[in-house]
Design a protein around this nucleic acid. Structure first.
Length: 924
RNA sequence: GCUCGAAUGGUGGAAUGGUAGACACGAGGGACUUAAAAUCCCUUGGCCAUUGCGGCUGUGUGGGUUCGAGUCCCACUUCGAGCACCA
């Protein structure tokens, strides 16, 4: 029989399913290995060939590990909550659950065709109440904990309450939004509402009145990672800053641990760097500047404490709380006008508009080192959300302050020797300090680095300031004004938020009559009937954001049906965290930060055993589209082939890549493609119509989407799997080009035809030749190494070489095929399984076989050819016994008649023998 | 602007500091076939030679280290990614 992928693949997929071949359970006799893919959001468009790239890579690794004897957990599920389903629901009125369910069914169908070894009994969906019960639970736990800066971990809020009640807030070691000053007596007399408000300063999940990214078009707030350059990532709509009451997660409390944790992770440097940037640790000092003739003290943050002597003005963010305190009556009108002006601008306008704007507050601050008065300005170039929202401006050594000073004609005092500040500021942190002395304390002559340290020490001693580390990482805004998300397990009693009890969970997402905000502007849940507790208290109307459900899903897979816990201790102790995580880099500052945060929190609670979720992470590259073009001659219906298009005035038109093969257009299919092309005419070259091409994003509108189903149908899943891996290095982005798939398809056919001639199976028990043994053991060695290093493309090249060798050797040895099939099984499981049973007559599945170990014995050569070179230039070859010692190789090379020509009386300075490669003779 | 990564044939891409271009696509030539498809064989970085062996050159640019550099170091160019009024 000829190789028939349809028959083989459907048969084995059914077998695996019927026999639960890939179901795994805790087995303490075997070591575990956990391989995870970033689960997909099931979009309406289905999978294109780019999606399975990472899944195939992880599947290969999972199968490999299993063959090596590990108990491999390899699950799959769906990130089912999300905006597209909701927007579709708004347009059509169809319940998002219905569209989500349909999309999931289609995804599953597509995935099943590719032959993955997922344990589907562990499948999960984030919108499943049995799952989101534990998302809600984690939120409640976050509400009930604070972050202790001394112990560096989350602690129960009751402990904090007790401390405040007995000792007040003085000396608390709790990470907080702002420092409070409450005595035990005051605490005792506070109302429930006041206490609740106070505690919101400490809770890890808290209700905060914070500046948020509000996207009017989407009608919801967005997290920082969902916004780029002032536009929403989804949709690209403008985002404005707005003060709103929102649920937040105190991710910033974990900034240092999130940063430190990166060091021990096996992730790519670039991804770790991205996270480091995002966390944005910066060491500096917080300093106090008294306001002249007032009790107000400005706290500012600076990384350049050394430049205090050059401060010529102060700047406050327009949103800063200080603005009100320092504005003088004379300046009130001007300040208010400026604040109005700033407010009108969107975040994006504020960023794009590089014009220097600002207004004088009327007040002066006192430089703590010089005692001089310096004006306090207000400008939107200072951000309210970073540091203290107030800065000391040193125009000589900061570009933004310089621009500001020049615009408003403020003085510039250079502090570094030789720095020319007549045209621009000198921002570099190097050079010797000048102009920096007040008689008592001097930095003059010091290097910048030493000056920073000296100043920090001095201001701490004098109580003017303190060393402070700031982070750019902000708390995560956790509320979304949407329908299709997890409801908050929160209700309000006299305006005080209360958490539901665990036994009341899951709090099910209610039905609504429409998915839009209510007329009064409440979120869609405002439409739900009886959205209150049984005691009649109103329930929170916001829902949770997308990252809520994806933050701990990897834990749930290890114990997916547990009704009593997110994950049992037993399951967690066995499966631990993810050994290998594969997914796109687009989640670098979103999911991968939140998940680490969530994990660390659960670790603090003692619920799980590891303080990092993903030990090793591989980012597969994006598969881009490869679009094809036809060239229509202007105002005609005639199309000219790519090579001749320059002779005409043409317009390029995208053409469906599925009717193009090797850039040659199928003319009949083109005419049938769209009615307006039915009577198209063509100008051909060499009898063919050659299309142009370009690499673009894979998308419907470019007609360059390739559906994996079509590939599987035509070539088979094994070919698809091999080809996706053969395209290039896993981590690299590359365009999908169906040209070339014939190569790997031919490989499978060659393999098949090596062992089958018609119906006759050629496998025999003959002793394999030396050549065959060398071929197969080279393969085993190479593939083992390559899988460990995720270099799948070179593995596949190794398979091709091996099969070519075996074909040339006419090797039908059972022993050789046995090893070949096992190492092939991770890559092309269906054809491997078929050969395993039909050709080798095994009764177990290849899945349970044992990974072979290569034997160096077979790789050893009898003779080795060395290239003999003189001064690095290759001249001739010598062939000697493989085990000849190096000095003899040298002697042989020098004694060769060909050497005489090059030696020719010259002095030999050195002879270098590189084992099995080169003999280099250095002559002078 | 700062940080990170990349640059190799017509194309995708191989090369622990050791004969650059594995493997595959495409292209050209040939075999089989009435023909096509499929399959198989040969050639395929460039230039020169091709009655022979072969010779020269070549991994974005310019330097350096080394017996020897695609690989290491320095400077530059281009492209990609991340961050970006973060004080």
């Amino acid at each position: 029989m000829d190789y028939n992928h349809k028959d083989i693949e459907s048969r084995w997929q059914k077998y695996w399913k019927d026999n639960n071949t890939y179901k795994v359970d805790i087995d303490i006799t075997r070591k575990k290995y956990y391989v995870l893919d970033m689960f997909p959001y099931p979009s309406g468009a289905g999978l294109h060939v780019g999606h399975p790239l990472g899944y195939i890579a992880s599947d290969i690794f999972a199968r490999y590990k299993r063959l090596q004897g590990y108990n491999v957990l390899h699950p799959m599920g769906y990130d089912a909550y999300g905006l597209p389903a909701e927007q579709y629901a708004i347009q059509t009125g169809q319940h998002p659950e219905v569209t989500t369910r349909n999309n999931i069914a289609r995804y599953r169908q597509q995935l099943d065709k590719i032959g993955f070894c997922y344990d589907w009994s562990r499948e999960l969906k984030t919108c499943d109440p049995e799952y989101y019960k534990w998302t809600q639970w984690a939120f409640i736990e976050m509400f009930n904990h604070y972050y202790d800066t001394q112990l560096k971990k989350a602690m129960p809020i009751e402990q904090l309450v007790e401390q405040i009640a007995t000792k007040g807030t003085k000396g608390l070691t709790a990470y907080c939004s702002r420092e409070l000053d409450i005595t035990p007596e005051q605490w005792a007399s506070m109302s429930d509402k006041e206490k609740s408000d106070a505690l919101m300063n400490y809770r890890i999940a808290y209700l905060g009145n914070t500046m948020v990214n509000w996207c009017p078009k989407l009608g919801t707030v967005l997290a920082n990672d969902e916004v780029s350059e002032g536009l929403s990532i989804r949709g690209g709509y403008p985002v404005e800053q707005k003060l709103m009451w929102q649920w937040c997660l105190r991710v910033s409390a974990y900034a240092e641990r999130l940063l430190q944790g990166l060091d021990k992770l096996d992730w790519t440097e670039s991804l770790k760097e991205t996270q480091r940037n995002w966390i944005g640790r910066s060491e500096g000092a917080e300093m106090k500047f008294k306001v002249a003739d007032s009790d107000v003290v400005l706290d500012i943050f600076t990384t350049r404490a050394d430049t205090v002597f050059g401060v010529t003005f102060m700047v406050l963010a327009p949103e800063s709380k200080y603005v009100e305190m320092v504005t003088t009556p004379e300046q009130k009108e001007a300040v208010e006008e400026y604040l109005q002006q700033v407010k009108k601008k969107t975040e994006r306008e504020r960023m794009i508009d590089k014009k220097v704007t600002g207004v004088f507050s009327g007040s002066y601050a006192v430089n703590p080192l010089t005692g001089k008065n310096i004006p306090i300005w207000i400008s939107d170039y200072v951000l309210a959300g970073y540091g203290t929202g107030a800065i000391m401006a040193v125009p000589a050594h900061d570009a933004r302050a310089y621009a500001f000073a020049r615009h408003f004609d403020l003085p510039v005092i250079p502090l570094i020797e030789g720095a020319d500040v007549s045209e621009q500021s000198f921002d570099a942190k190097e050079g010797k300090m000048i102009n920096s002395s007040n008689g008592e304390f001097s930095l003059n002559g010091l290097e910048v680095k030493d000056a920073i340290a000296a100043t920090k020490k001095y201001i701490e001693e004098k109580g003017i300031g303190r060393v402070k580390t700031n982070y750019r990482l902000r708390d995560a805004i956790f509320s979304r004004q949407r329908y299709w998300g997890e409801p908050f397990p929160v209700y309000y009693k006299d305006g005080v938020p209360q958490m539901m009890k665990l036994e009341e969970l899951p709090l099910m997402l209610p039905e609504v009559d429409a998915y839009l905000p209510t007329e009064s502007g409440e979120p869609p849940l405002g439409r739900a009937k009886n959205w209150k507790t049984k005691d009649g208290y109103p329930i929170e109307l916001n829902t949770m954001p997308g990252f809520a459900g994806s933050s701990a899903y990897y834990l749930r897979y290890t114990d997916p049906h547990n009704p009593d816990a997110l994950v049992s201790r037993e399951a967690n102790n066995y499966w631990h965290n993810v050994d290998l995580y594969i997914g796109g880099t687009e989640h670098a500052t979103g999911h991968l930060i939140y998940s680490r945060f969530w994990d660390k929190f659960l670790y603090d609670l003692g619920v799980i055993a590891d303080d990092e979720p993903f030990k090793k992470l591989i980012n597969q590259g994006m598969i881009q589209g490869r679009s094809n073009f036809v060239y229509r001659i202007k105002d005609t219906n005639t199309f000219v082939s790519h090579g001749l298009k320059n002779d005409y005035d043409t317009t390029p038109i995208h053409v469906d890549v599925n009717i193009v093969s090797n850039d040659v257009l199928d003319l009949d299919k083109f005419k049938a493609w769209r009615p307006e092309f039915a009577d198209a005419e063509f100008i051909l070259e060499d009898g063919k119509y050659i299309c142009g091409y370009a690499v673009e994003k894979m998308s419907k509108s470019m007609y360059n989407v390739v559906n994996p189903d079509d590939i599987v149908d035509r070539y088979g899943a094994d070919t698809l799997r091999l080809y996706e891996m053969f395209l290039g290095p896993l981590e690299q982005s590359k365009p999908w080009d169906t040209n070339g798939i014939d190569g790997v398809n031919r490989f499978i056919k060659k393999l098949w035809n090596l062992y089958y001639k018609g119906d006759q199976c050629l496998v025999d028990d003959s002793e394999p030749s030396k050549r065959a043994l060398k071929a197969i053991h080279t393969l085993i060695k190479k593939v083992t190494y390559d899988i460990e290093h995720f270099s799948y493309n070179t593995s596949i090249a190794a398979f091709m070489i091996c099969v070519n060798e075996l074909t040339a050797d006419k090797c039908h040895s059972r022993q050789v095929l046995n090893d070949l099939v096992v190492v092939l099984a991770p890559f092309a499981p269906h054809v491997a399984e078929e050969l395993w049973h039909s050709a080798l007559n095994h009764t177990t599945t290849v899945v349970d076989a044992k990974w072979p170990v290569h034997n160096d014995e077979y790789l050893r050569e009898d003779e080795v050819t060395y290239a003999v070179s003189f001064n690095g230039k290759a001249r001739f070859n010598i062939t000697v016994a493989a085990d000849m010692p190096q000095d003899q190789v040298q002697a042989t090379a020098l004694a060769d008649p060909a050497a005489a020509k090059w030696l020719d009386g010259k002095t030999i300075r050195k002879v270098i023998v590189v084992p099995r490669k080169i003999v280099n003779i250095v002559v002078a």
